[in-house]
Design a protein around this nucleic acid. Structure first.
Lengths: 167, 167
DNA sequence: TTAAACTTTCAATAATTATTGAAAGTTTAT
DNA sequence: ATAAACTTTCAATAATTATTGAAAGTTTAA
């Protein structure tokens, strides 16, 4: 496998994995491209590499910036904007975890809490609803806090987490 | 909030969260409905409650069965099939984690391994590709194994994991 | 100022994904 | 064997989501 093939394979695989962390294909592919690029890229560069339109590139870059994963860099003497992504995988994971929690998990926890707090009218269906959503609420909150704990430990959270859990 | 409203809210919230664990809306909603139902439901029941077609119900039920989350139950004296879902949230989380790992994470790990193993031709772009995909490979493998460790400990994996990580 | 160089916006369109419903298939009771 | 009761399949269609591209907007240099 040569460089071009490897690059293509990585970008498309990472792109389709986008769903796993809740972003769309183009967004994931732009991030992937920046991630393996030794230097910052311009919008032109990205459009060309990924064969996507200017509009698409612009919109998805903005989203990546909103996520805090991509930053603009100013190249002196150049008018156009250049972009880089966070290069440290652990920091990347940390940012993604934080954002997903904020955007998706936290709102769900809120709903589960509301739903599981309805008045028990004594019927079996109400009892079941309360019981099950309570359990789900607890689980979701625990997983969310576990994730935060792992990720906020320090630079070596993963190694430490693996180690602790093996004991 | 009364029972009906709570039920509706739970089903639609859980349904839209489907993306988070990689399944579609109808599938997640069927699972949600079964999850809060005190007794097994027939296809008819599900169609009616969720206002979806017979075909859709059938297909998504099958997928849920494939995932190992839903099972057919035979009600004696009844001809039609009834369905229930796994009611224990921790077991549910365990099944989902295992399936997502198998279906999505493992294949990605494989690709990352291949891509990061290309021959270093000395150019900076090849070096960067190798370095970054290697880091990602390591991270992904670690997260995957961490997840398995947590989930395979025992019934109380979550509590234990939270506890261990607090130390 | 002005105009060139660049970026953003957004309505139109394309691509993808989910859903329907009716025909075909299966099972069970008689 | 037959037919009623039920489930599955899948081509057609609908709904959703992503993408384009050109016009509008912005910034900078002279």
């Amino acid at each position: 496998m040569d460089y071009q093939e490897a690059k293509y394979k990585f970008i498309s695989t990472w792109g389709s994995l986008g769903t796993l962390w809740g972003i769309n294909k183009a967004m994931a592919q732009i991030q992937a491209l920046l991630f393996i690029s030794p230097k910052a890229l311009s919008m032109e560069d990205i459009m060309e590499e990924l064969k996507i339109s200017r509009g698409n590139t612009s919109m998805n870059l903005r989203q990546l910036i909103d996520w805090g994963i991509v930053t603009k860099v100013l190249v002196s003497g150049e008018r156009k904007e250049y972009f880089t992504t966070e290069k440290d995988v652990q920091e990347l994971a940390r940012v993604i975890a934080k954002e997903r929690s904020r955007r998706e998990i936290k709102p769900v926890i809120k709903v589960l809490n509301e739903v599981s707090s309805i008045k028990d009218d004594g019927t079996s269906k109400t009892k079941e609803l309360i019981k099950q959503t309570k359990a789900l609420h607890e689980l979701t909150e625990n997983l969310d806090s576990l994730m935060h704990k792992m990720v906020n430990q320090n630079q070596n959270w993963l190694t430490k987490s693996v180690f602790k859990l093996m004991k």
